[in-house]
Design a binder for these strands. Structure first.
Lengths: 207, 207
DNA sequence: CGTCTATTTGAATGTACTCAAAAGCGGTGG
DNA sequence: CCACCGCTTTTGAGTACATTCAAATAGACG
């Protein structure tokens, strides 16, 4: 079994454990039987990357969509002046990648970097199309997933616009209670669209 | 034929003409044969609303997803202090509604208002599920549509954060050249996340 | 323990806002 | 067809939230 081999390479003793995250996440939207899970597992690959390693750099075509099984991936892009803008922190059970680059097979403008040692499941463009073909339910799965993500992105965008920096920071801490400990301040600042300097001042104000 | 009757009510002489917008838009993603188009037309309804009329108000459940056939729909939400935040202008060929409210059947936080006399095609939740059932291709259609929309929303969000008000205004004019003439300044301001006062000053600076 | 990077702090600045008032514009009724 | 009313846009003056730049301090990693 390919998956077992991959996991052996990664020195993971319990294959089931690491994929449980994925099935739990997928299971919220569609139900997979044993044979479908086998098909799924024949199409995915599991990889591990170290802290600070890159999954994707601007200029490359994004060859895979990834689900984080363990760890955390930060997505960001840069403007002309090397300012970084963090767009997303993907943690356990979240999909990440660059949809635009992936589906259009065009160079990406994003960077994907591991904030910690991270285990991921990945699907190439071809494998993704095979997945849709072999298990059409996955069209539905990703349709619903994208719906939810769009709703979340729009809602985030809205609060970002409607509230000031201090309230956005409060909201961030509520929505991602554990993330603040896992992620350096400057990246949270760039996610909230403020300077690290100012976030530091906000933090002081609170305590 | 139901559709013909509806169109008769709307005093539209050419049914094909008004739906051409829809088929052109859908045709970019999936191909429909004649019988599929018939099925589609048996599920949709066509409505017309006057300028300033509402499709949806905050507190209501969004019962339909709409495609604009002719006209323009503005979506916005309000904060506690009655400030309006415009999230989208839907023009010919665009879908609009409130995805979150529609798919979860929960009260919406958005308002949808016609900027002009507007013709729309609409699908109820039930009809939408029937559409997925009868023509599974539509799972794919909406999956790809949502992908594209997510990419667009994220990209908009990114430029909004990365650029200052003046450059965002420039970009808006490039991306929606005709819209500026169709839509009052104050709504463009609330779309760009600035005050009408400030947008007025920006406009003066340019010319 | 030293080096490199991240965070904190201070001072000055700017972008965009608030509030208030004036001007412009469009629609409606006399 | 003009006059008036209400809503939108413009303009002015003062203000605030958040930034920049620089320097000091704290933390992390080898």
């Amino acid at each position: 079994m390919i998956l077992a081999l991959l996991c052996a390479n990664l020195r993971l003793s319990h294959v089931e454990n690491i994929l449980d995250v994925a099935y739990k996440s997928i299971g919220r939207i569609i139900t997979l039987d044993t044979s479908e899970k086998e098909t799924f597992e024949s199409l995915i690959e599991i990889i591990k990357i170290r802290k600070k390693e890159r999954l994707l750099s601007a200029g490359q075509v994004c060859k895979y969509e990834y689900m984080v099984l363990k760890g955390c991936i930060r997505s960001f892009y840069c403007d002309e002046d090397t300012n970084e803008f963090t767009t997303m922190f993907a943690i356990e059970g979240w999909w990440t990648g660059d949809l635009g680059s992936f589906y259009r097979q065009m160079p990406s403008e994003y960077y994907l970097v591991a904030m910690e040692e991270t285990y991921l499941l990945r699907l190439s463009y071809q494998r993704m199309e095979q997945l849709y073909e072999k298990i059409p339910k996955f069209e539905r799965y990703f349709r619903i997933l994208l719906q939810n993500r769009l709703i979340a992105v729009e809602s985030f965008q809205n609060t970002l616009q409607a509230l000031d920096a201090e309230e956005n920071y409060k909201l961030f801490r509520q929505n991602y209670p554990d993330l603040e400990k896992r992620v350096p301040l400057k990246y949270i600042a760039s996610y909230l669209g403020i300077t690290p300097t100012y976030l530091s001042r906000l933090r002081k104000r609170k305590s």
